[in-house]
């Protein structure tokens, strides 16, 4: 127990970093994923092909390999994030957002975007063709078909898998441990090494916080689902 009481500052800082990683990568992956899905389901064949290749390549590559690429290989060809150097001083220690952090955000964004794309695409695919045909048949213009018929159904169908991608992203932030971002898994590793007697307590604490964060995300998603559910 002492290990947790003595190091609550480190734990808090590390989870703050985890949450920041998640927030940045979440916004990035949602934007890039939306762009990808627009290309993926759009009418231009070249764009469709491009997005499909991107998704296939990236989602079959381990996330760690992508992060290591940005941390080890990319600097060799002049791609680095040295210009990122944000340190937020708090009473409990600094939250450091440096080149390692930025590289991890970029890697997580690129990786998660392809899952976001697939989630949204499954939403669009879930809308039966007849819905759009019926909407056109009653004379709705393209904008009307989208706004009143297709998109409302697509968003409802796409929300649960979309939430899954974001929950996976939250858990995947731990992979940034291997590129030396001081996030939750890094802190856990340090504390496990330093406090062999308290290993089980440390696991319980860290796993517990993660379970809470994951449940929070899934609670938010179920709220949206409930709000948008058709009676």
């Amino acid at each position: 127990m002492d290990a947790i009481a003595d190091n609550y500052q480190l734990i808090a800082i590390s989870f703050a970093t985890t949450i920041l990683l998640f927030l940045f990568a979440s916004i990035g992956s949602l934007l890039l994923g939306t762009l990808l899905v627009a290309m993926r389901v759009g009418p231009v064949a070249v764009m469709r092909r491009t997005a499909a290749v991107y998704v296939t390549v990236v989602r079959n590559t381990p996330l760690l390999l992508i992060l290591l690429f940005f941390s080890i290989a990319a600097p060799k060809i002049g791609v680095n994030f040295q210009f990122v150097r944000i340190v937020i001083p708090t009473g409990w220690g600094d939250i450091r957002m440096t080149n390692a952090f930025a590289g991890a955000v970029v890697g997580l964004t690129l990786y998660t975007a392809c899952f976001v794309c697939e989630a949204l695409r499954s939403g669009v695919n879930a809308v039966p063709l007849g819905q759009a045909e019926a909407a056109r048949a009653i004379g709705l213009p393209f904008g009307g078909v989208m706004r009143h018929v297709v998109l409302p159904q697509a968003i409802r169908a796409g929300l649960p898998p979309l939430a899954s991608t974001q929950i996976a992203l939250l858990k995947n932030t731990t992979v940034a441990l291997s590129v030396l971002v001081l996030e939750a898994a890094y802190a856990l590793k340090q504390l496990l090494d330093a406090n062999p007697g308290d290993r089980w307590w440390l696991l319980v604490a860290f796993a517990g916080i993660f379970v809470i964060l994951v449940e929070l995300l899934s609670f938010i998603s179920s709220r949206f689902e409930r709000r948008w559910r058709i009676a």
């Binding site: 858990k171 731990t174 939750a184 898994a185 856990l188 993660f210």
Partner: peptide, 11 residues
């Protein structure tokens, strides 16, 4: 399903 795999590995 909620605990990251990497944390289990480290532990």
């Amino acid at each position: 399903r909620a605990i990251p795999v990497l944390m289990l590995m480290i532990f």
